[in-house]
Amino acid sequence: MTLAIGLFVIATLLIAALGGYALYLWRRVWRNERLQAEARTQQQTALAEDLRILASCLLEEQVPLIEGAIRIKVLLDNYDVALGQHPRCQVFQQLFEATEQVPTHAAWKALDKQERRRHEAQFSALELQHKAEARRSARWLLDEALPKSRDAA
């Protein structure tokens, strides 16, 4: 009888210890999930602010149209794929696709002058064709699609 009571006490203590450890592990999981959610929220806020800045720069012509459109497209893909595919944002996708074969950085510098001029002529033609629509889309992003800036609140 005494042995049975002793084994019962040991089993109860073991179950309580394992339950306590399981609770500790679950609290760590919940904490990590909360931290990941906070990080995602901060990332989304930062991306929205970056999009607002780029759209404003595009409207104020502080960034070349093609470069601004490409940057906006890439940020939209990271911010909200559905928003990036919205009909009002298609101009950014079109400009990206029309210029994605153009070399960048060191490869651009390595191009001969004739090849660079050919690409620059293409940029000019694309800008003439899409400038008004890109500006309307940037304005729509600022006014309707993106959350209001923290500074404006």
Rank of each mutant, 00 (worst) to 15 (best):
A110H: 07
W30V: 07
A55S: 15
H105I: 01
S124V: 07
R52L: 09
R28V: 00
L13Y: 11
L142D: 04
A132H: 11
H130D: 04
E61N: 14
T2R: 10
L7M: 12
Q44K: 15
E97Q: 14
F8P: 00
R27H: 00
A98I: 02
L18R: 13
E38H: 09
Q129K: 15
Y21W: 14
A121D: 15
K113F: 09
R136W: 08
A16Q: 11
D143K: 13
Q114K: 13
L18D: 07
A17C: 08
A145Y: 09
K109H: 12
A138G: 06
A16G: 05
R27V: 00
A16S: 10
L3Y: 09
I72E: 02
E100H: 11
R88G: 05
R31L: 11
A132R: 13
Q36V: 11
L65V: 11
A69E: 01
I66R: 01
S137V: 06
C57V: 02
K109P: 00
A39R: 15
A39G: 01
G68I: 05
I66F: 05
Q42F: 07
I66N: 00
K131A: 13
S149A: 15
K113P: 06
H105R: 13
N78E: 12
R136M: 09
A37C: 00
E38L: 14
S149E: 11
N78M: 10
N32L: 13
R40K: 14
E120L: 14
L47H: 04
Q93A: 14
Q114H: 08
Q114R: 10
G20S: 05
V63F: 07
W108R: 06
K73H: 15
K73F: 13
A110I: 03
W30A: 09
E120P: 00
E100R: 15
N78T: 03
A22H: 06
A110N: 12
